[in-house]
């Protein structure tokens, strides 16, 4: 469960990149976070994962405050950043094993999960190579594998589909569904409305730091009809693709 209570953040004084955001993602739910470029999606996600400190408000991960009980909150988060910048000089297997050590995944579970995840994404045979030789998509895949290795309760993914081929994208969506069905929480940002429509239980739309809509995709469509500005925004997001 992710609870965001009246959170604000400004990088520059007087300009709030995220403005009193209030949001709760329940267990068993897939939540899609939509918004045009520069809307504040990454900023929100960085605050949830503890990379950024919020100026105001609280963020609770399974009831634990990310600021006050950071370590135990972070243990329950699997995070995929928007750019797959990783330790390129490590081999794929070294990276995954390192993540296993950091998140204290037991040896036998770790072996099984690594094999499972990497085979699913088709990078198992590349595990013995330095990640420098990986393509963009392969890097994205290994970061996802690393984040999901410890099977954390809360998945937080910043535009996880970019760079993935259709099959990997499909597999990831399947994994997200399965994870939510098992009573966990998935929060991800995206530009692709199609993905949001088919995958998400609920979506949130953020623009200029302000959350302007939360609800199911159907609600959103209904609301679009009688709300001109939301429709404009909708078009703006769709045009990205």
């Amino acid at each position: 469960m992710i609870k965001i209570e009246n959170v604000s953040k400004s990088y520059v004084k007087g300009k709030k990149s995220v403005d009193t955001l209030d949001l709760e993602i329940k267990d068993g739910e897939i939540f899609g976070f939509l918004g045009p470029n520069g809307a504040g999606k990454t900023t929100t996600i960085k605050m949830i994962t503890g990379i950024l400190n919020s100026d105001e408000g609280h963020i609770l991960i399974d009831g634990k405050d990310i600021k006050k009980e950071g370590i135990s909150a972070k243990k329950n988060i699997g995070f995929v950043p928007d750019t797959p910048d990783i330790f390129l000089k490590l081999k794929g297997i070294e990276y995954l094993n390192f993540m296993g050590d950091i998140y204290e995944v037991q040896a036998d579970i770790r072996k099984r999960r690594i094999e499972e995840l990497t085979k699913k994404f088709g990078i198992f045979d590349n595990l013995n190579e330095e990640m420098q030789s990986y393509s963009h998509g392969m890097r994205q895949k290994i970061v996802i594998c690393g984040a999901l290795l410890s099977n954390p309760k809360n998945w937080i993914l910043d535009e996880p589909m970019t760079g993935l081929d259709p099959k990997a994208s499909f597999d990831l969506k399947e994994m997200m569904r399965k994870h939510a069905k098992e009573g966990n929480c998935v929060f991800f940002s995206t530009h692709v409305l199609d993905v949001a429509e088919k995958l998400c239980d609920r979506v949130g739309i953020i623009n200029k730091g302000k959350l302007i809509f939360v609800g199911t995709f159907e609600d959103m469509k209904a609301k679009l009809k009688d709300n001109g500005s939301l429709e404009d925004l909708f078009l703006e997001i769709t045009q990205d693709e």
């Binding site: 330790f87 490590l90 297997i93 070294e94 094993n97 390192f98 296993g100 050590d101 950091i102 204290e104 037991q106 040896a107 770790r110 072996k111 690594i114 094999e115 045979d125 595990l127 013995n128 190579e129 030789s133």
Partner: peptide, 25 residues
């Protein structure tokens, strides 16, 4: 990307304590 296709043996994985694994990295 010169590919030396050496298959890994998944069973050769060693677990380490956090501090040790971090320093080795």
């Amino acid at each position: 990307g010169n590919k030396t296709k050496k298959k890994i043996k998944i069973n050769s994985i060693k677990t380490r304590k956090i501090g040790k694994t971090y320093v080795i990295k």
